[in-house]
Write a protein that binds this DNA or RNA. Structure first.
Lengths: 189, 189
DNA sequence: TGGACATGCCTAAAAGTATTAGGCAAACGG
DNA sequence: CCGTTTGCCTAATACTTTTAGGCATGTCCA
């Protein structure tokens, strides 16, 4: 058999595509081997194991997400930045549901620290520079923003907001309006 | 072998306990059979298949959550109700991480409609009676509350807020304060 | 240029999970 | 007490994960 040219990177990318097509929990070493028309055992020269594959896909997704967010944030501030950043999350989850699910994978602390998690946190704080929040309220606000973005996208992806009026796009806009208003008027302790 | 007394209900409860102990994605028909000291095939008289088991655990968790929330809401209004309701979610997820994960399972629409999802939605709206929100803002607010609660609890469970100051309890309180302020002062379209 | 060595994918095999089909014995109803 | 139902069992198939060891292909050096 000719060389298939397997590498960890190609396997990770293919795994991410597979995740978007069939769901992250359906991503399996076997399925990936089928996709490359190669025997399953062959992948174990490039991947430590199944968990390793999933972790790599998660890290890929976090990087992509951080790259998009950084792009979106460039040259924006205030509500404009808030909206752009939030839309990156939502759009990414809609375009790449499998990757987004992967990004939610619980990573061991060292993998998380090595990954793009830190970039995400820094960008959140950058957005808050457009509002007037001192510590520790800034941290509270960062956590709240993360919760709303992740929570909304996650519920929407699960189908929570479909089949009922008003449509999800409208709620999303109004939720972002509300967040902006809240940040401009954050209640004192 | 003496009769083990298997029923769908007992299997579901045991599955929920198993989920809390080892994680929802580790809940397997085989593991459940081991717990009852019974052969795997025996469970298939009581469960349609693995998916059926997971769905039952999810529905159980949603019921328990709705029961607790209804208790907490009784006799409360306004911010008091908001806080009590939110704490039910958070406490449940901390006490029963496996069950909480199960409650996030994507259910087929018919199972979801039959389940406690409707009760949850109604309780959210009941909380909002303490604030002055007309439709469609009420729906937007319901979606936002759901997003914050689910998102916060989910990120906290994933370890997102540990190992950094201020501690998560403090952020949670301040986020609830912020939500209360926001609902009392919801921005006009 | 031809061998030496490393690399890449293979076969083989063991273990765990999911699921179905059919059997035997205990419980139960008349 | 007998017949039927119920409940758990054995047996078998299929798929996924993972390890061990083999053969061929590509690379590098004399």
């Amino acid at each position: 058999m000719a060389y298939a040219g397997l590498t960890p990177e190609r396997l990770t990318r293919a795994g991410a595509e597979l995740a978007d097509e069939v769901g992250f929990d359906q991503v399996t070493v076997s399925a990936l081997a089928r996709r490359f028309d190669v025997k399953v055992a062959s992948l174990y020269s490039h991947l430590k194991n199944s968990q390793d594959l999933k972790t790599r896909i998660a890290l890929l997704a976090l990087e992509e997400l951080a790259d998009r967010a950084a792009d979106a944030l460039a040259g924006r501030a205030g509500k404009d930045a808030l909206t752009a950043f939030a839309n990156v999350y939502r759009d990414y989850a809609r375009e790449h549901p499998g990757r987004y699910a992967a990004a939610q994978l619980r990573l061991d602390p060292e993998a998380a620290a090595a990954g793009a998690g830190v970039r995400h946190a820094r960008m959140m704080r950058a957005i808050l520079r457009g509002y007037d929040l001192a510590e520790p309220d800034q941290t509270h606000a960062v956590r709240m923003l993360g919760s709303v973005f992740h929570g909304y996208v996650s519920l929407e992806t699960a189908g929570g907001f479909s089949h009922s009026a008003p449509d999800s796009q409208e709620s999303w806009s109004r939720v972002l309006d509300a967040l902006d208003a809240l940040l401009r008027n954050w209640p004192a302790s």
